[in-house]
């Protein structure tokens, strides 16, 4: 018998993401994990600014729309005063890694006991597709019209690898939403991250390679193809920091 599948109640609403956007898949996976871990009624989201803000209209949970880039600091404050709640910082790459790199990296540095899910779609989606710190070399965006020149903009940032190699965090992984297989793996990563938090193991981060068909000017299917062919070779999928007890 096939698995019964139903969108979890906390996210069972129409979402205003663009057609083929990966956000909807990721938030559903998070909600599924929270439901399975019986945390869906014990939950606070710290939402980033950008397309992640659009979750505010669909989530049926406690959630705060944080100042741009500060979700990891806000999540820190929440977790410190209400450690019994499961706290999820949900941010895009621009929010988490550019304007919020200080807050993001310092939460990881402190091994703060919450879970961050970072949607990496290699650009600033909400503002119309500007270059982000995860934009690929040569990628054309509205602020790198001739293609990203890494000589003057730096190289794309690999955050899970960074925290896994430099800090004592509980769990760090990268997944993608390109196929059922990758989505199922990603769900395992998200679940591991949340379990790490519930067990008090410390900071967990799951980065997700996610399509932005609108700003990439590609069809949803070709956006997934781009992730498989261009992004995954640079941003490898997998676990960079395993949980200690696993």
């Amino acid at each position: 018998m096939a698995k019964a599948r139903k969108v979890p109640a906390i996210i069972d609403n129409p979402m205003s993401f663009c057609p083929g956007c990966g956000h909807g898949i990721v938030i559903r996976l998070i909600a599924e994990c929270l439901e399975e871990l019986e945390q869906d009624q014990n939950l606070i989201f710290a939402l980033g600014v950008g397309c992640s803000s659009l979750l505010g209209g669909g989530l049926v949970t406690d959630r705060l729309h944080c100042p741009h880039g500060r979700a990891s600091a806000v999540a820190t404050g929440m977790k410190r005063v209400q450690p019994e709640n499961t706290i999820v910082a949900y941010q895009g790459d621009g929010d988490a890694y550019s304007i919020g790199i200080a807050e993001t990296i310092n939460a990881a540095y402190r091994n703060e006991n919450f879970t961050m899910v970072a949607i990496n779609n290699t650009n600033y989606g909400m503002t119309g597709g500007q270059m982000s710190w995860t934009t690929m070399p040569g990628q054309v965006t509205t602020t790198s019209p001739l293609g990203r020149d890494c000589e003057i903009t730096g190289n794309p940032l690999k955050f899970p690898e960074l925290v896994a190699s430099q800090f004592d965090v509980a769990f760090a992984a990268r997944g993608a939403v390109t196929s059922p297989k990758n989505i199922n793996k990603l769900k395992k990563y998200i679940k591991n991250g949340l379990e790490a938090q519930i067990n008090g193991e410390g900071y967990s981060v799951i980065e997700v390679l996610s399509p932005c068909p609108t700003n990439w000017k590609l069809s949803p299917l070709n956006s997934m193809k781009r992730i498989e062919e261009e992004l995954i070779p640079y941003y490898p999928l997998g676990v960079f920091k395993e949980r200690k007890e696993n």
């Binding site: 018998m1 096939a2 698995k3 019964a4 139903k6 129409p14 909807g24 399975e36």
Partner: peptide
Amino acid sequence: CIKCGICYTMCPDGVYEISHNGESGGED
């Protein structure tokens, strides 16, 4: 349709639901 649920897995917008005997939800 074999009710495998792959459409549910891939859908970003919560279009699909697959239920057993009219009952829905959760893992089996």
